[in-house]
């Protein structure tokens, strides 16, 4: 346990004393700002149209949370899928490249402690990135008002959206961690993880013209399909389990990969 926390602290200190995590946070801030202002522009356009066309009830039914925040979160989700491999690529592969892996593997530390300590540190960076994204609903709630003068933002939906993003990010990071443990070069680890994650994200694209079990399987595997309910404010057990199982699978495989160095 001590070793696990030691590795967690060390990994966290490396993340925040070297550029990588800061660059990711910066890029996250930049792109979420772009998505946010884009979604706000769409909102403005739609509300102006609704006023011009004078369709009854449209303005009342328009919802900042669904139209702006959910849109933002959806865009951030893809962004997470693409950047997580670059956050996790260095976790094990860099140790091998820098010859510090020998230190970890000859210390009285279980492979599981190494894997978990590193994983937890990457989760903290993920949480920081999501805190940046969470600033936008916060802004809205300070500066805007709801349809009948109520709160501008449905916080329950926002929290479930953030929870979904966190679970998605956790899954992506664990896949990245596995590839980092399985390869010697950080960049190769990132690219392999990217291919797998994008494949999972777009799984339903592969079965567009197909009906039946194949379609269902693709939907069940698709990382994007499972995020939907979270963005609508629904916490569905099967979706939570999807992300958790993939995360656990990634971690288990990473543990096997690290342990495997003892046998080969």
């Amino acid at each position: 346990m001590r070793a696990l926390f030691a590795i967690f602290r060390k990994e966290l200190s490396v993340y925040f004393t070297t550029p990588l995590a800061w660059v990711v946070l910066m890029v996250m801030a930049f792109f979420s700002a772009q998505f946010f202002t884009g979604a706000l522009d769409t909102w403005r356009f739609v509300s102006l149209r609704a006023v011009q066309v004078q369709s009854a009830g449209t303005l009342e039914r328009m919802n900042l949370t669904d139209l702006v925040v959910a849109r933002l979160f959806g865009a951030v989700a893809l962004f997470l899928v693409v950047t997580a491999p670059f956050l996790s690529m260095r976790l094990v592969a860099e140790e091998k490249r820098d010859r510090t892996f020998e230190l970890l593997m000859t210390a009285p530390v279980r492979p599981a402690a190494i894997v978990l300590g590193k994983y937890l540190a990457s989760l903290v960076v993920l949480a920081a990135a999501l805190a940046v994204v969470g600033a936008y609903p916060l802004l809205l709630s300070r500066l805007a008002q709801g349809a009948s003068g109520g709160p501008a933002v449905e916080w329950a939906t926002v929290w479930s959206g953030l929870a979904g993003l966190f679970l998605l990010g956790a899954m992506a990071l664990s896949v990245g961690l596995f590839f980092s443990a399985a390869t010697d070069t950080p960049v190769v680890a990132a690219l392999l993880a990217l291919v797998v994650l994008l494949g999972l994200w777009t799984a339903t694209q592969f079965t567009v013209g197909v009906e039946g079990p194949a379609r269902d399987l693709a939907a069940a595997l698709s990382a994007s399909e499972h995020l939907g309910p979270f963005l609508q404010g629904r916490l569905v057990l099967s979706d939570v389990l999807y992300y958790l199982s993939f995360s656990v699978l990634g971690l288990w495989l990473a543990d096997r990969a690290v342990e495997g160095h003892r046998w080969v």
């Binding site: 060390k10 200190s13 004393t17 010859r99 510090t100 020998e102 230190l103 000859t106």
Partner: peptide, 15 residues
């Protein structure tokens, strides 16, 4: 029970 110094000292350059 073993203290080990590998061929290349295993230092973390950022620490």
């Amino acid at each position: 029970r073993v203290g080990y110094l590998p061929e290349a000292p295993p230092l973390y350059d950022s620490m």
